[in-house]
């Protein structure tokens, strides 16, 4: 093990898979000579050359479509969106082509492609650059959606996503790129994390917090606060949103009987709502309280720093929700 940053873990995953398979290439805005808008792809252009690290003009619909076409005939593209906000411009390509081509061809064509980039809020980047896209993409059969919180999972899941024969939306976070975490040394073998498996980074007995991506770290802070008051909270970090690891969620509910789902996206029809549905269907008799959701506020993200924090899930809100499901008020 050694400690590396989240962005370095992603870079290692891309480099190792490009080394392993010539069919893997990277395409996106400023990924090459500029070294990546968030420096995830730093050094890859020098290492792999312009054939495989391709700077695209600002044309997400066009280059996402090029990636899908290339994937249909056997390449394994990694398409970087500078942020997932810009994937909206390529939405038709992702949902009408990538997600559909296997089924509408009767299973003849597959689409092994990864769409990756930062998702959700950054810091004061305003309403158009702060959106969470997981509910849009997880809604679509034919797609997989992954959103890691830790450097180790970022590497292992990205490698798994590149090797997956289905289109995968790989959601990162600008605010996580700099965090450090233990990641196995490449010399100790391939580090792969299976898509569709949640994990429990913190075990507890009184209440379960289900989260993913950046909010997992907020939840860990909330757990520390709860511990001060003698409340033992368990954290389920989903890592994958589609497929969703029902088993790990239900096992935790059976243990704690109380659940708070915390995520950054909007509440209406969000991934949190889907998780709540699964819990009430699969573990109704194990629940001792209604499941609560802490989500981003139901408004476009404001620029003002204080208002932005007001709109995002914070430690006190998660702590408060945990107490409510424990009826300790």
């Amino acid at each position: 093990m050694r400690e590396i940053r989240f962005r370095e873990a992603l870079r290692e995953a891309i480099a190792e898979e490009m080394e392993r398979d010539d069919a893997v290439f990277l395409m996106g805005e400023e990924v090459g000579r500029y070294q990546g808008a968030y420096k995830v792809t730093e050094g890859l252009f020098e290492r792999f050359g312009e054939r495989r690290v391709i700077d695209a003009p600002i044309a997400e619909n066009g280059f996402a479509g090029i990636g899908i076409g290339a994937a249909m005939v056997g390449l394994r593209p990694i398409i970087e969106f500078m942020t997932f906000n810009f994937s909206a411009v390529a939405f038709d390509q992702i949902i009408s082509n990538a997600a559909k081509v296997r089924q509408m061809s009767g299973g003849q064509f597959t689409c092994p492609i990864v769409f990756r980039g930062p998702n959700g809020s950054a810091r004061q980047v305003g309403s158009q650059h702060s959106q969470s896209f997981e509910s849009f993409y997880a809604h679509v059969p034919g797609l997989k959606v992954v959103a890691p919180a830790f450097a180790s999972d970022a590497k292992g899941l990205l490698k798994a996503a590149i090797r997956d024969d289905n289109p995968v939306c790989f959601l990162e976070s600008e605010t996580l790129y700099g965090i450090k975490g233990d990641v196995p040394d490449p010399a100790s073998g391939d580090h792969l994390v299976e898509i569709g498996k949640a994990h429990v980074p913190h075990a507890g007995t009184d209440v379960t917090i289900v989260s993913w991506s950046r909010i997992t770290h907020v939840a860990l802070q909330a757990i520390a606060e709860l511990a001060k008051e003698g409340i033992s909270a368990e954290l389920v970090d989903l890592r994958s949103l589609r497929p969703l690891d029902e088993e790990t969620i239900v096992n935790s509910v059976r243990k704690t009987h109380r659940v708070v789902v915390a995520h950054e996206g909007w509440p209406y029809g969000g991934v949190g709502a889907e998780i709540v549905d699964r819990i009430q269907r699969l573990a109704f008799d194990d629940l001792d309280a209604p499941v609560l959701r802490i989500s981003g506020m139901d408004v476009p993200m404001p620029y003002n720093a204080k208002l932005e924090q007001h709109c995002l899930p914070q430690v006190p809100a998660i702590v408060e929700a945990c107490k409510r499901v424990l009826y300790v008020h």
């Binding site: 619909n61 066009g62 280059f63 996402a64 479509g65 090029i66 990636g67 899908i68 076409g69 290339a70 994937a71 249909m72 005939v73 056997g74 390449l75 038709d92 390509q93 009408s96 082509n97 081509v101 509408m104 061809s105 009767g106 003849q108 064509f109």
Partner: peptide, 29 residues
């Protein structure tokens, strides 16, 4: 949506213009 991988028929598509980037993609490959 008529597809045939063996004949290199990459399909018919229903969103007007949406398949044109795919063609650039297969040519890219």
């Amino acid at each position: 949506h008529l597809f045939d991988v063996a004949h290199g028929m990459l399909g018919g598509y229903g969103i007007v213009g949406g398949h044109i980037p795919l063609a650039a993609g297969t040519a890219f490959a």
